[in-house]
């Protein structure tokens, strides 16, 4: 059951209905009130369809940041039969906003992968420890160290993206946030192993891209990916932080938008009501899709893989050029 106090305004009527159904089922063992339960379920179904068919881009942003939304480790614990976390950048410290390690992907016949992920924390204490999923340079450098490891041992990389963005702080700047991100972009573009990235929540600009250069980019239906947060965009272009609705809509940052712009390869349907309604189902959906893409990529010769990745990014962008 989902606590309605942790629900977003627009999903609350649905959550309340669902909770009522659960309660009735428990009370009556499902027998006595079967007719009423069926009626409520039909109503819940209708409400779900109506609410989710009419979601605005900003509402999708809110869903992508939902406090109950599964975070990367919720996926890893379900998608992977084994996971050995590896820590540290060997230079400064371990950044817990990024989780990385060796894993076996269940849906890919338990084969070895290197996993890279942003991890937001649940609850204040963990959220602070993980800096709300906003990495510092050492986080990106940890990722880079392990990318090199993956290249050496020919392990495919799976990246789960979920960050508000790279941390904008004095310490991060002192240690070269820009360089840390930049280097990862270059390194990932040339890594001789398949890379599949999935945006599971927030794709926050360069901070997301820094572990997200890949052969295949997948996005969960209610995840978002943008060059700047709607808040940032609204305050710069509209000079008004309140114009987040417009900013979110104008930037075309939903999964469907990115699909039509050719940036995303596949949009993954979420469980009814969103990923937070069933962690198991969400993890199954992501795991299966990642495995399917890894199967396709792992048969490619290395040169074809790298040329394909280069061509993919080389083609992104729209401009006019007169034919000469």
């Amino acid at each position: 059951m989902i606590d309605p106090r942790q629900s977003l305004d627009f999903e609350r009527p649905l959550v309340e209905l669902e909770n009522k159904i659960e309660e009735l089922k428990r009370l009556a063992g499902g027998e006595l009130l079967a007719a009423e339960i069926r009626l409520l379920e039909r109503r819940a179904q209708r409400a779900r369809e109506e609410i989710f068919a009419a979601l605005t881009p900003w509402q999708k942003v809110l869903l992508s940041r939902h406090p109950l939304r599964p975070y990367a480790m919720d996926y890893v614990s379900r998608m992977c039969s084994e996971f050995i976390e590896l820590h540290g950048d060997r230079a400064f410290r371990d950044d817990e906003a990024i989780v990385a390690g060796l894993a076996r992907l269940r849906a890919w016949d338990n084969q070895s992968i290197l996993l890279l992920a942003h991890q937001k924390g649940r609850g204040t204490k963990e959220a602070v420890r993980r800096n709300f999923g906003m990495p510092r340079p050492e986080g990106y450098r940890k990722a880079r160290r392990l990318m090199d490891l993956a290249a050496r041992f020919r392990l495919p990389i799976v990246a789960l993206i979920d960050t508000p963005g790279a941390f904008p702080g004095i310490d991060a700047e002192e240690r070269g946030q820009a360089e840390a991100i930049a280097k990862n972009l270059e390194v990932m573009a040339g890594l001789p192993v398949p890379i599949v990235a999935a945006v599971i929540g927030e794709g926050g600009s360069g901070g997301a891209l820094a572990i997200g250069v890949c052969d295949r980019l997948l996005m969960l239906e209610f995840s978002v990916y943008s060059v700047i947060s709607p808040e940032g965009c609204a305050s710069i272009l509209w000079k008004d932080q309140g114009k987040v609705d417009q900013a979110a809509a104008q930037m075309k940052m939903t999964a469907e938008d990115l699909k039509s712009l050719g940036v995303v390869d596949e949009v993954l349907r979420e469980p009814p009501g969103g990923a937070h309604h069933s962690y198991d189902e969400a993890a199954m959906i992501v795991g299966d899709a990642v495995a399917r893409h890894l199967r396709e990529l792992s048969v490619l010769p290395q040169e074809g893989l790298l040329d394909g990745r280069y061509a993919k990014y080389r083609a992104l962008g729209r401009f006019e050029e007169p034919r000469s």
Partner: peptide
Amino acid sequence: GILSLMQMAKTSA
């Protein structure tokens, strides 16, 4: 939008 972000990957590649 996202196309400008992707220029970071494109130029770095």
